[in-house]
Nucleic acid binder design. Structure first.
Lengths: 165, 165
DNA sequence: GGACAGTAAAGAATAAAATCCTGTTTGTAC
DNA sequence: GTACAAACAGGATTTTATTCTTTACTGTCC
């Protein structure tokens, strides 16, 4: 049980994954509830090595989380908006404050620092247009450092997968 | 066990969730491996009702998937790019072909139909700039119907949560 | 008020899965 | 060939999920 003994902790270094690791990852990305036995059958191994590999993938930080994915529309968050934001002031402190603000807004489910005209790209979910307008005017724009904001509305989700390896 | 008897199948209708359902959802969005017992303790119920509620959330389609989330950088997919695409021709058939193409490209992990200047927004992961360039030139642009393509590079992930309710 | 139906939950029994332990196989260095 | 380590199989043990049975609560009809 070599991998089990590696004390590889969460650093930012990429790790080396063999064919079996990748097969296991692909299966778990699609269904995190798949049992070790089921995975073992699919990768043609017994449960022990599969279990050890999964634990190693968790310890090494390759698998960073197991999450239940929710149907937006079912929970009355049918509107998705991509929202671009530029700041007026770009000091370290101003940026930190903005990020803190974003993290307190539950409507914002993703936020990226991006290249180009705007500073940030946000993925926002809301119940409907009124709800989004309220978020825009009363929450997002409350930060005094917000410059421009531009909204792009998502009209349809064509692909949304977790599988990337 | 009222909810257990509801034969609510996956439609697009929003469903009604009470406080307890929302608490359970919040926990599972953060950690899909949390045991029924742990959840039960946190929501101050026994395992039975919690188990039944979870099963109902699955059957009704509120929980659409359990997924292992991967650290991009760890699996050598450190570069994330937001990619805008407009098509030359907008017929139903041309759109369908594009979507089919997108679904065959593993680098594209998300694809949205959007409002505004471009038709689609793609989230793409690649190993590095060369890898992305190769994707852009040899894969994405191979569709004969591609008009404009614009790439925005993600310089940092500031927030990425599954929790939306 | 009291019987009744419907709903929600607790507690215990059972089934299934994860986890751990022991030993075997395989490849490699000496 | 022998020693050693990595990777694995099979089975024992522990933990968890699932099911079953019983109890408690709520509102309605008579």
């Amino acid at each position: 049980m070599a991998k089990a003994l590696k004390t590889e902790q969460t650093t930012n270094e990429p790790v080396t994954l063999d064919k079996t690791d990748l097969s296991i990852l692909r299966l778990l990305q699609q269904n995190a509830r798949m049992t070790v036995k089921e995975i073992a059958d699919k990768v043609h191994l017994s449960t022990t090595p599969v279990h050890e590999r999964i634990k190693w993938l968790e310890r090494s930080g390759v698998i960073k989380q197991y999450a239940a994915l929710i149907d937006h529309a079912k929970v009355k968050k049918g509107l998705m908006v991509i929202c671009y934001v530029s700041l007026k002031e770009h000091s370290r402190n101003a940026g930190t404050k903005f990020i803190k603000h974003i993290n307190e807004l539950p409507e914002v489910i993703e936020c990226y620092n991006i290249s180009g005209e705007f500073d940030f790209m946000l993925k926002v979910v809301a119940e409907n247009m009124d709800d989004y307008y309220n978020f825009h005017v009363n929450k997002l724009s409350q930060s005094e450092n917000i410059g421009n904001v531009q909204s792009v509305f998502v009209m349809g989700v064509l692909k949304h997968t977790q599988v990337m390896v």
